[in-house]
Design a binder for these strands. Structure first.
Length: 816
RNA sequence: GCCCGGGUGGCGGAAUCGGUAGACGCAACAGACUUAAAAUCUGUCGCCCUACGGGGUGUGCGGGUUCAAGUCCCGCCCCGGGCACCA
């Protein structure tokens, strides 16, 4: 055995062993219990960052642990290869996106291998390859034929100088990031998936996802935003048309003092044509950025249209205002504004001196409508025939009334909007549609798939180069044969990541999107990724899984049974970023200390769900621990031969050490297998190693206990630091590799204790400790605690009121 | 603004179901080894007081429940994530 720990040599050897033995290649074995462990695949941005290292280490630890538990583990890896950065790189450096992406993949694959992750590389794919996206195109067409896809105009950020569509990320303070021009909103036709048709299922099935953090389920619930309300038609005075408003609070209808319209509302658009001032205001609203956060924080502004609607009960005339905080995407784009009971309406009413009438007496104490809105439910006042009813009673009565009158009724509404999948970008999967002047939108016939994205492109112009490539877009109509044009938009990249987990099960199938192997492996048993994907990616993947189920491609309802969301990696308290200059390159760390040290630190520094503060000296500490472990094993294997363990023949000290070994197995198994708190599992193993290092027992049984202890330590650490343990396992005298070993088992007999220490408190303050026999009676414990000299000091001049005994833990004496 | 998290020593964190606050590691300090340094090993390490036995105090802030609160409840403050075209 080498005198010193030499990670570079040893890690290369271990990796060669796994390669030569195809250790992580799996095929479907119906008799075995499958376990699919998946970490969110990376965007190939150039090189791995610490967030990747952390994510993939967590996944690898779980995969290797489950393998040691006897499960048949699949852990694949691939590339989320379409996206904006490739286009930016092309503009900045003149490298074509395809070439840039493939080079990044090649480099990052090497980095993943160097970190020793146990992936089945035979299943690898990149989403930018036609083999992959052809099935996405095929599936989109299936959905189109079923009516799950439709086209409508929707707004995008438009940069008037660069003549291009911008992502929200590319808009900074309302200006285009390259040109600095004020961004405009522009409405263009785009493709949508009817995710709202699945809103109820997506909401209801969250209850099945017991293996998901409650936090994420709550975020999805809020995102879907199911609400039960009432739609009400308002007559427009002097016009034949009506305005439909949706409200969750019909009980406040007597407090309605105006109606708010979104700038995009058809009536607002119509009025803007006729009135110059209104036109300018609507245009100004439409110039501002799209992001919800911007809409929510901007000043509430509006303009009176001069139109009036009739209050459906009182008949009073209410002014119609165009308001910048009313969203066309939610409800009907028209709101019945009740300033006394809605904060936004209240602010707006105050800004424009509109009336505020309180119509609810809140249940929980008093409110003051001069200070702010009173949003709670209560009893109706100032509400005519409805006075005295509770909010809930009034809701029902009014809903029935409007339904009976044929001008509204109960309605369930969702905050969730349909999924716009069109992107006016080059580096994405082409949307497989053809527009024919005669036939309209026609899907590309299955036999013509895939629609291949041309890779030789000129990225120097503005906008997508596809729009400048007649050889791409000129085609003939599949239906009538006339000259027609292909869609030049590409798919949202969330499309690729919405189904990749299933494709890993059968990535080699060139005849179908999925086959029965997808049902063998999915639902994914453990999915691991960043909390930043808690809503969009995970919701889209859940939606896709249900779509695929309804196409008969999979059987289950949900794609991911268990979810672990990892926190961010920070340096000096801030997210690592190039602009802050606080990045740490994992490669430099691996070069210097080896993969095991980096993996160990990443798992030790914080539990996975919390953010992780990077610390260079902490990494050195991890390295020191591995060196000490190496020397601990070396000292042991170089001593005399190890006899068989005879548990009957152990001294008290040997029994105590062996008990610690088995307590550590119990703790580490629970921490890794149930709690996913790898940091505390590592701490427990470190504690055990500290105890082993102090042990000077070179008797026969002393060495036997040490052998058992070291074999335990090596196996407990094997998922986390697989390279050093690979080697140490052989050094401890084994012929087979530790990667194929079973997780150590707890010997319950080793855990037995004769006595247990109890803490003694007086009035809740720690005053003493007593040693009692393990199964001692309550009375005995109480007697011993009261007799304790330290306790007496605090009780002798007081009366004992009560003695609380918590078995195995403490005694609390209440004295006054 | 809305939704979801978090706040514990000099630092990262531990305390799992309301029961010993500070495990484990880092940094720092002291000692051993060394010609010296590095490495390694040993010890100390929340704050205040101390006769060195111990005592007081302490988990963002202010209240409350309880024999007992970092943990539960109410009200604040600060930091982070998401907000539909970054992935």
């Amino acid at each position: 055995m080498d005198d010193t720990y030499q990670p570079d040599r040893l890690e290369a050897e271990a990796q060669r062993y796994w390669d030569d033995n195809d250790s992580f290649r799996v095929t479907e074995e119906p008799a075995r219990e499958p376990y699919y462990c998946l970490s969110m695949f990376p965007y190939p941005s150039g090189k791995l960052h610490m967030g990747h290292v952390r994510n993939y280490t967590i996944g690898d630890v779980i995969a290797r642990y489950q393998r040691m538990q006897g499960r048949h583990v699949l852990q694949p890896m691939g590339w989320d290869a379409f996206g904006l950065p490739a286009e930016n790189a092309a503009v900045d450096n003149g490298v074509p996106p395809a070439e840039w992406t493939r080079e990044n993949i090649r480099f990052m694959r090497g980095q993943l291998k160097r970190l020793g992750f146990g992936y089945d590389w035979h299943r690898e794919f990149a989403t930018c390859e036609p083999d992959y996206y052809r099935w996405e195109q095929w599936f989109f067409i299936q959905l189109y034929r079923q009516g799950m896809v439709y086209k409508k105009t929707a707004t995008v950020n438009w940069d008037p100088v660069d003549q291009t569509v911008l992502a929200n990320e590319q808009v900074e303070n309302g200006r285009g990031w390259r040109s600095g021009a004020l961004v405009e909103r522009r409405a263009i036709p785009q493709w949508f998936l009817r995710i709202t048709d699945y809103a109820d299922q997506l909401l209801a099935d969250l209850d099945q996802l017991e293996g998901w953090p409650e936090q994420v389920r709550a975020m999805q619930r809020n995102w879907i935003g199911r609400s039960e309300g009432v739609s009400i038609e308002f007559e427009v005075v002097g016009r034949t048309q009506t305005l439909n408003a949706y409200t969750t609070r019909p009980d406040t209808i007597f407090g309605a003092s105006y109606m708010g319209l979104a700038a995009e509302h058809p009536l607002a658009q119509e009025l803007a044509q006729q009135d110059q001032a209104l036109g300018e205001f609507v245009a100004a609203c439409q110039r501002t950025a799209l992001a919800e956060a911007d809409v929510a924080t901007m000043d509430k502004r509006g303009m009176d249209t001069g139109l009036r609607v009739r209050h459906p009960i009182t008949g009073a005339e209410l002014p119609v205002w165009i308001a910048n905080f009313v969203l066309m995407e939610y409800g009907t784009g028209a709101v019945m504004a009740v300033p006394a009971h809605d904060q936004r309406d209240w602010e707006f009413a105050h800004a424009y001196s509109l009336p505020v009438t309180q119509v609810i007496e809140p249940d929980d104490g008093e409110g003051d409508v001069t200070a702010g809105a009173i949003p709670g439910k209560g009893r109706l006042i100032n509400s005519g025939d409805y006075n005295g009813l509770s909010s809930d009673e009034a809701f029902d009565r009014l809903a029935e009334r409007f339904a009976a009158e044929g001008r509204g009724g109960r309605e369930v509404n969702y905050r969730l909007r349909d999924w716009g999948v069109s992107r006016q970008r080059y580096w994405g999967a082409p949307i497989p549609m053809i527009q024919c002047p005669a036939c309209g939108d026609v899907p590309v016939p299955d036999e013509d798939l895939p629609v291949v994205l041309p890779e030789q492109v000129d990225m120097s112009g503005t906008g997508s180069p596809l729009k400048r490539m007649p050889q791409f877009y000129q085609t003939s109509c599949p239906d009538c044969g006339a000259q027609a044009e292909r869609e030049t938009d590409t798919f949202d990249t969330f499309m690729e990541s919405a189904w990749y987990y299933a494709r890993f099960a059968c990535a080699d199938n060139d005849r179908a999107m999925l086959d029965q192997r997808a049902d063998y492996w999915t639902p994914v048993h453990q999915y691991i990724g960043g909390i930043e994907h808690a809503i969009l990616h995970l919701l889209y993947a859940r939606f896709f899984h249900k779509l695929m189920r309804d196409q008969g491609l999979v059987q289950s309802d949900e794609p991911f049974a268990n979810l672990l969301t990892q926190g961010m990696v920070l340096k000096d308290g801030a997210k690592m970023s190039k602009s802050k200059g606080n990045t740490v390159d994992p490669q430099a760390m691996v070069d210097r200390f080896g993969a095991d040290t980096v993996r160990l630190f990443a798992m030790f520094a914080a539990p996975p769900e919390q953010s992780l503060e990077w610390s260079d000296s902490g990494v050195e500490g991890a390295y020191r621990f591995l060196r000490r472990l190496w020397q601990l094993v070396r000292g042991h294997v170089q001593s005399a031969p190890v006899p068989a363990l005879d548990v009957e023949a152990l001294t008290d000290e040997q029994r105590a050490l062996r008990r610690k070994v088995h307590e550590t197995i119990a703790k580490a198994s629970d921490d890794i297998g149930r709690r996913y708190t790898f940091n505390t599992a590592i701490a427990a193993v470190m504690e055990l190693c500290n105890a082993l290092g102090r042990c000077q027992d070179d008797s026969e049984q002393g060495r036997a206990v040490m052998q058992e202890a070291l074999e335990t330590v090596v196996r407990l650490l094997a998922p986390i630091v697989p390279h050093i343990t690979h080697r140490l396992w052989f050094e401890l005298g084994h012929a087979d590799a530790v990667v194929d070993e079973a997780w150590p088992a707890v010997d319950d007999i080793a855990l037995v204790r004769d006595t247990v220490e109890l803490v003694v408190q007086v009035n809740g303050k720690l005053r003493s400790r007593i040693e009692v026999p393990t199964g001692a009676e309550r009375d005995t414990i109480e007697e011993q605690a009261l007799a304790d000299a330290h306790v007496q000091r605090f009780t002798h001049d007081k009366t004992i009121h009560k003695v609380v005994v918590v078995p195995g833990k403490l005694v609390n004496i209440v004295a006054k």
